[in-house]
């Protein structure tokens, strides 16, 4: 654990993200044996992961990749979270409604990938509907690409959103009868009511 190998995907340095103080507490990276302590630990990790993903605009977290990033690996302390513990924490987040495994919860080495709901699809649906409302674009047709990649949404939190997540959010609106999605594949458009 003490060897510092250069990670494969360090990503851009998180200039704006400041880690919470728990991140500098060495035992934070060891699963606590005591039940209530572990519960407190999970809650702290949950809010850290959500804040980190929000700051870095991460929608899906692949555990095997994330283990080498500074989220799970505090290089300054030389402490890191193990795969098993990371999985347990994401599982805790799932019970909280703040994560969802993609595919089958990967076992063993690969660890799996999970949506991190720093906003749930319902909340995203609300944010999109609000933006449509606020910019008076009801009854206009937008392409899905426009919705997340155009300059018009650059200041919105859903800018650059994962297309799959966008589908989920729009599905919520469709179910509520507030939107209609048509077209196919990468030519999809959406109309809001």
């Amino acid at each position: 654990m003490t060897t510092t190998h250069t990670s494969t995907s360090p990503g851009p340095p998180p200039a704006t993200f400041s880690f919470p103080r728990d991140y500098y507490f060495p035992p934070f990276f060891t699963r606590q044996p005591q039940r209530t302590t572990f519960h407190a630990q999970c809650q702290k990790w949950s809010s850290l992961i959500q804040a980190y993903c929000r700051a870095h605009r991460i929608w899906k977290l692949s555990l095997v990749d994330a283990l080498d990033t500074d989220l799970f690996y505090n290089k300054r302390l030389g402490k890191r979270l193990s795969m098993a513990d990371a999985r347990e924490i994401v599982e805790f987040m799932r019970t909280e409604g703040r994560a969802e495994w993609i595919g089958k919860p990967g076992a063993g080495e690969e660890g799996g990938t999970a949506w991190i709901w720093w906003r749930t699809p319902e909340e995203w649906a609300g944010a999109i509907a609000e933006w449509i409302d606020g910019t008076a674009q009801k009854n206009t047709v937008l392409t899905l690409y426009e919705l997340t990649e155009s300059e018009a949404t650059a200041s919105e939190e859903f800018h650059g959103m994962d297309p799959e997540l966008l589908q989920k959010a729009l599905n919520v609106l469709v179910k509520r009868g507030k939107a209609q999605v048509f077209g196919q594949e990468d030519q999809q458009g959406v109309k809001f009511f």
Partner: peptide, 20 residues
Amino acid sequence: WVDKQCEEWEYWNPGFMLEA
């Protein structure tokens, strides 16, 4: 809190987070 990622397990007081 226990930290097992060291030669000998270290037992930390959570109040130390601040100073850290």
